[in-house]
Design a protein around this nucleic acid. Structure first.
Length: 554
RNA sequence: CUGCCCGUAGCUCAGCUGGAUAGAGCGUUUGACUACGAAUCAAAAGGCCGCAGGUUCGAAUCCUGCCGGGCAGGCCA
């Protein structure tokens, strides 16, 4: 079925036969990597196996290549030739393309859902923004990449859970309460000083106003402490709801919303400290409790419980990660903003101190996002410390364009987000370029139906009539989708998929302009409809992973 | 000062565990709608892959040192 696998097996067999024949000797063989050659003249697949094997065998790569070529004979293989410094190029008989195409149509919406790794539970924790204000564009990158990564890992067969860690304990929440309190008093005509670390965002005033609208000035009569604690809960509930709403509008959903406060209330912090003490990674000094994170490569040890008895953020985080691993995840992936990268060593050290392999905790750092409008950087407000909110961004450029722009770049690179480009509904926008391909295909099928063409059973069509170069290229590209999913998932690189689907759309548009579909000879017409259907399926499935709509019309 | 990320075409960026002539989009120039959606296509121009060493059959890719930009370095989160 899978030609690539067959080919790998053949190469391996040939190598073993050659060794058995005593042609060359090697106590070890490199993995057989097959790649699509950079140029078509080099065939359908190529391998550098001979060059790699040359190292172990201490022989001339070209000779090893020759030995292998001499020993490969398959009915589906047209020829294998040696090229360049020792590549072996394989030219396959075209049938494999057609059976691949038929299989895509048969698989339909499950094409690209590969493998079954459901034994492996992976958790992805992302966004986890403080519920103290609206999400901004930086969170947008995390939200888009995180949700796409979840989809990608699911497509690759893993059992995946998306989680949001709610920072509903600690300083920032007290500041939130104090800020709302100050705004409330202000609006009630009471003169107050705004808290130094307070949140200046307009949304805080709105929250205070809503409290007044609902409950009037009745909170003026109670003590400051009581009022603060009531406002804390009110604000938290409201901010959290707003967060969920914004994320849903962005196509982002979580399986679990995990409360930090719950960790405190359930005694998880004390418990984890006890475990670390027992394991010898925690000690007392200057009245505080320290994690011996230097034992696992951190620059210095870290305070976990302050000398005033209040736990640091790290304490909750350690308890949280222990909780994650106790839930049975073999891999835990955290998406963090670049400003948190300095936190990695201590977190890894904490995981190691708890007896887990730090490799089980993968931390993906997303570099900063800068917005550009009219070629100029959109500066963030000094006073509120906030840039454009995610919601504003979605309203301005649309969910799909925003997601695509966040996803299309490597997370290691800083992102220059061009607002004008993202919202232009024209040829310069890569999102619409891809969606247009999908809509165009849907239009073709509408058209076909109107003139009474039977579009059922297309996998039965005479696919071997597809012999144009652009048709062949398109089929090959379609066939790469499953392995694209696998490698993107392995490398946690969602942007690869964005590039793939763009390339696919490009090949489709080229084909479309060159080959007439409706109205040609009816056998060829069916074959081309089949091809186009497979493109629609693949684009649709790829976009689904990215969380982007595949429209029927635009 | 130390750590992490980045430096590739005018701009924004790909380039997978080292491999064949370094790619894409935008922008620029020139062409293609009296047949399926021109939000499209075809073609051209455009590169000491930051610099300097090293590793080897072979380096944009790996190592070291510089240079430039971003982000961190709290008993804040």
């Amino acid at each position: 079925m899978d030609v690539k696998k067959l080919l790998q097996e053949s190469i391996l067999r040939a190598a073993h036969t050659a060794i058995a024949d005593g042609v060359f000797s090697a106590d070890q063989l490199p993995p057989i990597v097959l790649e699509v050659p950079p140029q078509k003249e080099f065939g359908d697949f190529a391998t550098n196996f001979a060059m790699q094997a040359a190292k172990y065998a201490r022989a001339n790569p070209k000779i090893i290549a020759q030995v292998i070529v001499d020993r490969i004979q398959e009915e589906w293989l047209d020829k294998a030739v040696i090229a360049g410094p020792g590549f072996i190029n394989f030219y396959l008989k075209p049938e494999w393309l057609y059976s691949m195409l038929a299989e895509i149509i048969r698989a339909g919406s499950s094409y690209g859902i590969v493998g079954d790794k459901s034994k492996e539970k992976i958790q992805v924790e992302f966004v986890s923004a403080n519920p103290t204000g609206p999400l901004h564009v930086g969170h947008g990158r995390g939200a888009a990449v995180g949700s796409a990564l979840v989809n990608l890992l699911k497509a690759a067969g893993y059992d995946v859970q998306a989680e949001f860690y709610i920072n509903d304990a600690g300083n920032q929440i007290d500041n939130l309460a104090a800020s709302v309190n100050a705004r409330y008093l202000e609006l009630c005509g009471v003169e107050v000083e705004f808290p130094i670390d307070g949140y200046h965002g307009y949304d805080i005033i709105e929250t205070a106003q809503r409290i007044i609208n609902r409950d009037g000035q009745k909170y003026l009569d109670i003590s400051d402490g009581e009022r603060l604690s009531i406002f804390k809960e009110l604000a938290l509930t409201e901010k959290l709801a707003a967060l969920k709403e914004d994320l849903e509008a962005f196509g982002v959903n979580f399986d679990v919303w995990f409360s930090e406060r719950a960790l405190h209330q359930n005694g998880n912090l004390q418990a984890v400290c006890q475990i670390l003490k027992d394991r010898g990674y925690m000690y007392e000094q200057d009245g505080a409790l320290w994690l011996r994170s230097t034992a696992y490569g951190d620059d210095k040890d870290r305070v976990v419980i302050r000398d005033n008895g209040i736990p640091t953020y790290l304490a909750a985080d350690i308890a949280y990660h222990l909780n994650k691993f106790e839930r049975g995840f073999s891999t835990v992936i955290n998406l963090w903003g670049a400003d948190h990268h300095g936190y990695i060593p201590r977190m890894k050290a904490a995981v190691a101190s708890l007896g887990y392999d730090p490799k089980q905790l993968e931390i993906m750092i997303l570099q900063m996002v800068s917005l550009y409008r009219n070629g100029e950087l959109v500066k963030m407000s000094k006073r509120t410390g906030q840039s454009v909110t995610l919601l504003e961004l979605i309203e301005e450029v649309g969910k799909d364009a925003a997601r695509f722009f966040f996803i299309m770049r490597s997370t290691d690179s800083q992102l220059d987000f061009d607002l004008d480009l993202a919202k232009s509904k024209s040829n310069e926008n890569p999102v619409y370029y891809i969606q247009y391909a999908h809509a165009r295909i849907c239009s073709i099928f509408r058209q076909a139906q109107e003139v009474g063409i039977d579009t059922g059973d297309l996998e039965q069509a005479e696919l071997k009539l597809l012999t144009n170069e652009c048709e062949i290229d398109l089929i090959k590209k379609l066939g790469e989708f499953p392995e694209e999913i696998i490698s993107a998932a392995q490398e946690r690189t969602v942007h690869r998929l964005a590039h793939y689907v763009h390339d696919l759309a490009s090949l489709f548009h080229g084909f479309y302009n060159q080959c007439r579909i409706i109205g040609v000879d009816s056998q060829l017409q069916s074959a081309r409809l089949a091809l186009v259907l497979a493109v629609k399926i693949t684009i649709g499935n790829a976009l689904a992973v990215l969380g982007i709509e595949a429209p029927e019309k635009m």
